[in-house]
Amino acid sequence: MNRRRNAGIGLLAALLSGLLVYGLFQLQKLQVTRQETVEVVITKQFVEAGKRLTEEDVAYKRIPREGYTKEMLVDLKQAVGMDTVIPLGSNEPILGWKIDRYHLLPADSESTFQIPRDYIRSISNGIRAGDKVTLYLSGENEPSRRILDSLVTVASVKSSSNVEIDNMKDPNLLSLAEGDKERMYASRRDANGMIEYINLNLTEPQWLQIDSYCKDGLHKLVIAYSPESLQLEEEDRQ
């Protein structure tokens, strides 16, 4: 009996010793993993552009430290409630420039104004939501001139059927955000529909200035796409 008991105790001691060694190994492995990886915020599934992220859309994931960049989010609170500027893939680390809060809404000092059609002489067909545009004033018997010193953000551009104009297969905002000039050019070229309605984010003085010039019908706006739009996007990403 004593021999069996001693054998059982020895076996139990060996088993406990093995479990202790295994536990220490797993603890060391976890510490090494944490030292060599970084926990970042990812999307659980594909998220289309323009969607507001919720807690159900995002999660944490550890990635190799060498694959981490400072643009990657490391706190869920940084992502929840933000709008996606471009589509995000499943399990994709979220970069700060790919999301924004109320991306196309006006700033605190601005409102979104739909410009009356009879105020407009021409609109560049290449203009898309999110672009920065330059406004010119064209009069019948006087030289044309720039009416506002600063660029203006386009909130939306729509066709006569009230549909946002863009190339759905290759959205302009995606190419613009990624800084891909070739794809952006192709997206604007291939988009269907004539611009019938345009909404601009303006301050009150800017709108009153436009309205005072155009309401009598003697002056009209020429709305032109500005190449500074892409330059500003590149500066924001940097």
Results as ranks from 00 to 15, higher is better:
residue 134 T to F: 03
residue 195 I to V: 13
residue 132 K to D: 05
residue 124 S to G: 03
residue 143 P to E: 04
residue 186 A to R: 15
residue 147 I to M: 14
residue 160 S to C: 05
residue 142 E to L: 08
residue 215 K to W: 00
residue 192 N to I: 11
residue 117 R to Y: 12
residue 180 D to G: 04
residue 172 N to T: 05
residue 118 D to S: 12
residue 229 S to Y: 03
residue 115 I to Y: 02
residue 142 E to Q: 14
residue 113 F to L: 01
residue 121 R to S: 13
residue 116 P to S: 04
residue 175 S to A: 03
residue 201 N to K: 05
residue 228 E to W: 01
residue 169 K to G: 07
residue 199 N to S: 11
residue 227 P to Y: 10
residue 181 K to M: 07
residue 177 A to E: 02
residue 172 N to G: 13
residue 179 G to S: 15
residue 117 R to Q: 06
residue 180 D to A: 10
residue 185 Y to R: 09
residue 183 R to Q: 15
residue 174 L to W: 02
residue 215 K to P: 00
residue 184 M to A: 12
residue 209 Q to M: 13
residue 175 S to T: 03
residue 178 E to C: 00
residue 217 G to W: 04
residue 119 Y to C: 10
residue 164 E to I: 01
residue 118 D to K: 15
residue 175 S to Y: 03
residue 194 M to N: 09
residue 113 F to T: 00
residue 129 A to E: 07
residue 151 L to R: 04
residue 176 L to D: 01
residue 211 D to E: 06
residue 164 E to M: 05
residue 191 A to R: 05
residue 216 D to S: 14
residue 160 S to E: 08
residue 146 R to S: 13
residue 142 E to Y: 06
residue 137 L to H: 03
residue 219 H to P: 02
residue 165 I to P: 00
residue 167 N to F: 14
residue 182 E to F: 15
residue 131 D to R: 12
residue 154 V to P: 02
residue 185 Y to L: 03
residue 213 Y to P: 07
residue 170 D to T: 10
residue 113 F to W: 09
residue 201 N to S: 10
residue 161 S to A: 02
residue 181 K to S: 10
residue 170 D to K: 11
residue 147 I to F: 08
residue 136 Y to V: 12
residue 129 A to R: 11
residue 195 I to Y: 06
residue 138 S to K: 02
residue 194 M to P: 00
residue 170 D to F: 10
residue 207 W to F: 08
residue 213 Y to G: 05
residue 177 A to F: 03
